[in-house]
Amino acid sequence: MKPESEAELAEIIPGLSEPVRIVGGGTRGVAGPEAELSTARLRGITLYEPGALTVVARAGTPVVEIETALAAENQQLAFEPADYRAVLGTSGEPTIGGVVAANISGPRRIQAGACRDFLLGVRFVDGRGQVIKNGGRVMKNVTGYDLVKLMAGSWGTLGVLTEVSLKVLPKSETAATLVWEGRDWASTLKLFCDALGAPFEVSGAARLPEEGNQRARTVLRVEGFEDSVKYRVSKLLELFKDSGPDQVVTEPAENARVWGAVRNLKPFQGASGNVWKTSVKPTDMTRVVNGSNPNRIIDWGGGLIWTLAPEGEDLREALDGIPGHSTLVRAARSEMEMMGRFQQEDAGIQALTQAIREKLDPRGLFNPGLMG
């Protein structure tokens, strides 16, 4: 089913006799019911006001279409949405609805915030076929819920997004990346803590694993006006005068390559094994990695750990006693069904989640079983 409009979608849903799998560009590799409900034809930018730093687009609009329109005005989606197609082995086009539904947020999250922090409003169709608009019509049975925040990261389990409104930001004039090679986990964490604790507005703090003849790299990014970037880089060099970087990258294309590798998980592309995403407190990073498995990409100053793990290995066991959660991003279907994509919520959160779903999708139509 591929509705051509929000109105058509609202007519389809009440007539559904079985659960459906919600699909945008089909790039996430999400399994589910055989019946598919696609937003691919709900596309197009409906409003763009560069002066107001606001863009409104239908859910099926390709991300590249939005980024192209913003670039023409020297603006950007500051949360750096990632493209995981090469890692997941999928095709199709990443859509803005899919980005919002999965709350996909890149390296700049550590400074600028996540996708949900830039989401100004949503339109979606609930499980009764009612069109809901944040800030407009308010249903009695969802009064008090922040629908914008609920829809971001809900993976289509609460409703079918039809339109999103986003805050955008100007592109940075320039960027610089400080690169350390061959640092171990403990010294990497210290670099992160020292840099992010200093007043120099670091917009990326990551570690890439060894790749071919390239040693592991710990990288810090600074962005902004050219004079500001030069000043902040000089201050960081002073801060790390006893353990300075091996390189400072200022060439735009090389900066783009480094952070594209972090954002899109380049070291894992074409590699066999399961891919896990683990979120913890940055200071708990070393407790999680514990000197094991070098096939990890660290982001958000240690708060986000991507791991390429052997098939059958459950990384959630490594979190015993460590606050956080692990998501299985890529695995064979049998393993995904056995271990589950998402970590099981505790009883209190699970009860709250179920109550919200019953309000918005009382018949359990949307992506059943995906999030527990």
Rank of each mutant, 00 (worst) to 15 (best):
G301V: 07
S272H: 07
P294V: 10
A309K: 00
T327R: 00
P245W: 08
G291N: 07
E251I: 11
K277I: 01
N255E: 11
W306E: 00
P323Y: 10
W306K: 09
W300Q: 05
G321T: 03
P252E: 03
N295W: 11
V288R: 01
E311H: 15
I322W: 10
T250R: 13
V280A: 06
K277F: 03
G302H: 07
T307Q: 08
E254A: 15
R257F: 01
D242Q: 15
I322R: 00
R296G: 04
Q269R: 11
R287I: 06
P282D: 01
F268V: 07
D246Y: 10
G303A: 13
N290Q: 11
N295H: 11
R287K: 15
Q269M: 13
F240K: 01
N255P: 01
W300A: 02
F240Y: 08
P294A: 12
Q269C: 14
S272M: 01
S279F: 13
R296W: 02
E254G: 08
S272Y: 10
Q269T: 14
M285P: 02
F268M: 10
L304V: 05
G291T: 07
F268D: 05
S272G: 09
S243I: 12
E251L: 14
I297C: 10
G260P: 00
G324N: 06
L319Q: 05
G302C: 01
G260R: 02
V258M: 09
V262F: 02
D242G: 13
D242V: 10
R296H: 12
N295L: 13
K277A: 02
F240V: 05
S243V: 11
S243Y: 13
D314L: 09
L308F: 12
V288A: 06
E317S: 14
L265S: 06
Q247F: 13
D246S: 15
E313G: 01
P282T: 00
L315S: 09
E254C: 09
T286N: 08
H325L: 13
D246Q: 10
